[in-house]
Amino acid sequence: MNRRTLRRTALPATLFIALGLTACGGQTEGSATGEGGVSGEVLVDGSSTVEPLTSAAGEFFLEEAPDVNVSVGTSGTGGGFEVFCQGQTDISNASRPIKEEEAAACETEGIEFTELQVATDALTVVTSSENDFITCLTTEELATLWGPAAEGTITTWNQVNPEFPAEPIELFGPGTDSGTFDYFTGEINGEEGVSRTDYNASEDDNVIVQGVSGSPNALGYFGFTYFEQNAEALKAVEIDSGEGCVAPSAEAAQDGSYTPLARPLFIYVNNAAVTDKPQVKAFVDFFAANDAPIAEAAKFIPLNDEQRSALESTASSLG
């Protein structure tokens, strides 16, 4: 190879390497800036149900701390805890409390965390607005309908309640990866993750909305927001847990009368991240102090007074 050839081959190669190296630079590290403001990244992942709330918090927080980048992912509650316990994220969104084995994984990696309840959700059982025979279901009836024993056997509505017509049951619900599924099965069927499997499962709640609104004999469940946004096509079923029928609403979820399907929504905060990264501490403090307007803007059910003071005191004890 003569010198000229070498130059012709070497030039593009050098350019390519140089390009690659320059592109690798330019990384921002989290730190407190001189003006007393904070900057850097706050990494959040986890439940897609809680994501709008944390995103709204991040958006409001931007007005106070314009140099902080809050990025929120939606790997699901379980997927979020997985990376949280590897120390890859600062905050994990969760639509159910952390499981023992997940907490154990955190402990193995030496990750200490704090649980903060940031909002309430009313898991809503819905039928089509055209359904004229269901207004209220007892928790026993829901268990008959959704329990693992129902698979293949409970197929018409009169099997759930003799007063219902002998129409075929069409069920829609979230898939098994969802925290909503975990919570519902835990409360209704007595064990998390145990459910009949012959229903139309979808991770996309809009698919459940479509499915349920399409048939008068269909029933499904999801978070309260999806009912509120589709209230004209759907009917929320009242739930009777032994003390009378209660319709899902913000008030009923807040005062605790909507049982057992009112569920707490959490963020889990990595304690070390709060201590080491001022922007994470500032974000968590801001979130706790402005929880009510944040929840309202993101269309979540805000905490009641008792829960709010618990949130504020836990948040202030951090770091």
């Binding site: 592109a23 690798c24 630079g25 330019g26 990384q27 921002t28 990244e41 990494l43 992942d45 994501e51 944390t54 995103s55 991040g58 958006e59 931007l62 980048n69 809050v70 990025s71 929120v72 992912g73 939606t74 790997s75 990376v83």
Partner: peptide, 17 residues
């Protein structure tokens, strides 16, 4: 890979979210 969905800044490098 984490599926970040809500970021309110411009990605500015290979190690940026």
């Amino acid at each position: 890979l984490g599926g970040l969905v809500t970021i309110r800044f411009d990605p500015n490098g290979l190690l940026s979210g």
